[in-house]
Every structure is written in structure tokens, then in C-alpha cells.
Amino acid sequence: MRSEEEANRAVERYADTVRRICMVHLKNYADTEDIFQTVFLKYVLHSGAFENEEHEKAWIIRVTINACRDLLRNFFRSRTSSLEDWQEKAGEEKEDYSEVVEAVQSLPPKYRDVVYLYYYEEYDAAEIGRILHKNVNTVYTLLARARKMLKTRLTGGDGE
């Protein structure tokens, strides 16, 4: 079990990453709070050592994606709210660049992580495969399909 100082350091270092993944998957601020608590509590309770910061970050990403999936899978989730409500809470003003985020959010869930990890976190297909526990070819396939969908969605296909 990690100390409170280690927990605070991890929150400061990875809060934005967790927040972005939540943004990709969730439309509810309360759920985001739940994910934050789940992910960082798992981090605190995780007894294994990380080889380096990259390894630690990949672990956080993996745990966050899983936590989001688990939450969305929960059929009995009582809290629901609109995207607008979420954006209001997040204090995000709708500007040009939010179009990209919305485009990712509009993708079927299985494509969102691949797109986010590839385009924003700039992992290559092999690294994405390791993080998501998917075959590299599957990652390529998902990326190719996601690109097509994003091209249609984003004006002029600039998103690709």
C-alpha cells in the first residue's frame, strides 16, 4: 500500500490523463469522480513496482479504461445526465477544438480508446495492443475503421 504523499503525487501527475479518458467515455461528471476515486485507490493499493514513469502511466491508462468500461457496463447505473451537463461541470467552453473531442465521443466505444491513444498519447499500434491487451492487427483494423468514421464526421476529413 502506498502512502498519502505518493497518492497525492499520482493525482497531480495523472489527473489530466484520467480526466481525458473519462471525457472520451463518460457523459457524467459524477461518474468521472467515481472513476477518479476508483483509479487512484487502485493505485494506492497496488503493491507492484513500476519500472519507470512510462510504465506507471500505461498502468494508469489501462486501469482508467477498464474502470470506465466497468461503469458503463453497469446496467443499473442510476445517474444519467446529458453531455451538456457534463461540459458545464467540466467548465469546458465549446470551441473549435471540442469538435475533435465530440467526434471521438461519437465513435462506438471500442474505437475510442484506440483513437485517443494513437492520436493524442501517440502510442504506436504495438504499445496500444499491450495496453488494451489486443492483437496489433486488431489495433490496425480498429484504427482504419475509426479513421473512416472520423473523416466523415469531421469537416473536410482534417481529423485524420
Binding site: 497518492a7 489527473a15 480526466r19 481525458r20 485507490l41
Partner: peptide
Amino acid sequence: WKEAFDRIHAEEALKEHTKEYLARRL
């Protein structure tokens, strides 16, 4: 892509709540 996602930050309140929660649990 960079700029769109770079604009997304965890709110201070969210971070503070998380830290408080972790401290309580610990």
C-alpha cells in the same frame, strides 16, 4: 488533436476531492 485534448484538465476540485477520499481511505 493535441490542442483539443490539451485543453482538457482535471478540475482542481476534482483533484482535491480525490485526494481527500484517498486520505480518508488510507
